[in-house]
């Protein structure tokens, strides 16, 4: 009998033209926001992105993530990962409940778009069949199993293209940190029955976002907007001053 995990997502939008990153920095940021909140407070461009997202409308909730980050080598935007431990770099989304079987019977749908970045999310290219004992594993056990076996023999990574919306469900994928300092815009719409959505609409919008540093194994404040002071601050975990000091003698400053 067995089951299979699908290959590279086939439902892909046309290329979407993006504004300058300076413009996107001024747009409000949303995290676990409802479509109603986005339509009320979002920019015209963000509403257009929502219009272009091919919603299935077959779950209880639709949540939206729309943020700009600035990340460097070894930094991630949405997921943490410890390369020293066997937690799942390759994973399937929609799995807050450990004993669920979403990897075999997917319920959730995700719609993902990345822009400006050179390091794009990778999906497994070809369909993979699983048979035997693995058929009994729940999602948590399945992720542990994936990290026990030699994934290189099973998986051929294929990157998504920027500025396109990819629709997927139980597709294996992983985040890719960049090899340089760069901006990254993330648009993710999740159709789910499980996610916690803040009741107050203003709590669905954020003025501060975070990124995860693999080396420090910690989240850090990445970008903060001070609306009242008309300022945007960008933070780097190593500190800009350290970067400066690579080039500067202290006496020169």
């Amino acid at each position: 009998m067995g089951f299979y995990i699908p290959g590279f997502p086939t439902e892909v939008s046309e290329t979407i033209e993006f504004p300058d990153i300076a413009e996107m920095l001024l747009h409000p940021m949303f995290r676990v926001a409802t479509p109603e909140t986005l339509r009320k407070y979002g920019t015209e461009f963000q509403k257009e992105l929502l219009d272009k997202t091919p919603l299935k409308n077959n779950t209880k909730h639709v949540t939206i993530w729309s943020v700009v980050n600035v990340i460097d080598n070894g930094q991630r935007v949405m997921t943490n990962y410890d390369p020293k431990r066997s937690n799942s770099e390759w994973h399937i989304d929609g799995c807050e409940i450990d004993d669920a079987f979403d990897h075999i019977y997917p319920i959730e749908t995700c719609h993902l778009l990345l822009s400006y970045t050179t390091a794009l999310t990778q999906f497994n290219k070809n369909k993979i069949n699983f048979t035997g004992e693995v058929e009994k594993y729940n999602i948590s056990e399945f992720h542990q199993y994936l990290n026990r076996i030699n994934l290189n023999e099973l998986i051929t990574p294929q990157s998504i293209e920027p500025n396109k919306i990819y629709t997927f469900s139980n597709h294996l994928h992983r985040a890719v940190p960049p090899n340089r300092i760069e901006f990254r815009y993330t648009w993710r719409v999740r159709e789910t029955n499980k996610e916690y959505i803040p009741k107050h609409e203003m709590s669905q919008m954020i003025i501060e976002n975070t990124a995860f540093d693999i080396h420090k194994q910690d989240w850090f404040s990445n970008l903060i907007k001070e609306h009242h002071n008309h300022k945007i601050s960008i933070y780097f975990p190593a500190g800009v001053w350290n970067y400066f000091n690579k080039n500067m003698d202290v006496d020169d400053l």
Binding site: S233, I234, W241
Partner: peptide, 11 residues
């Protein structure tokens, strides 16, 4: 503006 540990954009 460059501050210790951050870059600030004055809008």
């Amino acid at each position: 503006e460059v501050n210790e540990g951050s870059i600030m954009i004055h809008l």
